[in-house]
Amino acid sequence: MSEGLGALGLGIGWRPELAMAIERRLGLGFVELTAENHDPDGPLAEPVRQLIGRGVKVVVHGVSLSLGGADPPKPDRLAALSRLAGQSKAALVSEHVAFVRAGGVEAGHLLPVPRTSESLQILVENVLAARGALPVPLALENIAALVEWPEGEMGEAEFLTELLERTDSLLLLDVSNVHANARNHGLDPLEYLDTLPLHRLAYVHVGGGVEREGVYHDTHAHAVDRASLALLEALAARVQIPGVMLERDDDFPPADELAAELDAIREAVVVGAARRHDP
């Protein structure tokens, strides 16, 4: 366990391209497996099995349930998440507050839901259906949205809080997505943190991004920026963080750069946690 962190500790999103660097990195508490990248009928990838054998914990992460969509989550997708959670002895499954398809068409990425009481009710029903089908608790993640719905009735943090309370779900907080939405839509990121039910925090995502033409893009292909680390520190000053992980999906850096990013993440938690203990 890393200083300042809870049971999961410091982690990373497992990707085949990073398998070697992850295997060599000592002190990792957990890896996150993206369900859609694993054969739903096949065995776990050998490097993942080895990590589990070493005591590294696993969290299963879905990207295609479309919990924010108009249709209830599909049983076969839930079954695939459940099977992977069983195979990897995962303590937790996570998904997004987003929709990824509509009208039979795929978006290929996570899109925001309108923040109305009507769509909240649909989301609550979808999340409860998913929770009922999964063998482990479900954590819900905030997304970075480049486009905002005109029919918003409530703020993002308020909407997410209502959803978590009404479904009794855990929170996967992506601090880089909080930064992205704060930067692009003029939110106050600290007020956002203060609105959320942080006692529901399951773990935290940190990912890199880049600013182009005045818009921040959450790419997971660039280094983690200072603003995300500052938010992570602010979060650690408010609550004990059970686990925090780096998301890197593209332009994979050499192992030493990756290690430096993980060190910076741990350092931000240590500094924030010290403020919590000794304000």
């Binding site: 108009a70 249709d71 509509a102 068409v105 978006a107 899109l111 309108p114 905002e148 719905w149 005109p150």
Partner: peptide, 25 residues
């Protein structure tokens, strides 16, 4: 659910370049 489906399909088709008549956004 039908209202949400319709609005999400409208947004998605605009994002995929298939709908140039998206209101409110």
């Amino acid at each position: 659910r039908a209202r949400l489906a319709r609005r999400q399909a409208e947004l998605l088709s605009a994002l995929l370049g298939q709908n140039s008549d998206l209101s409110g956004f």
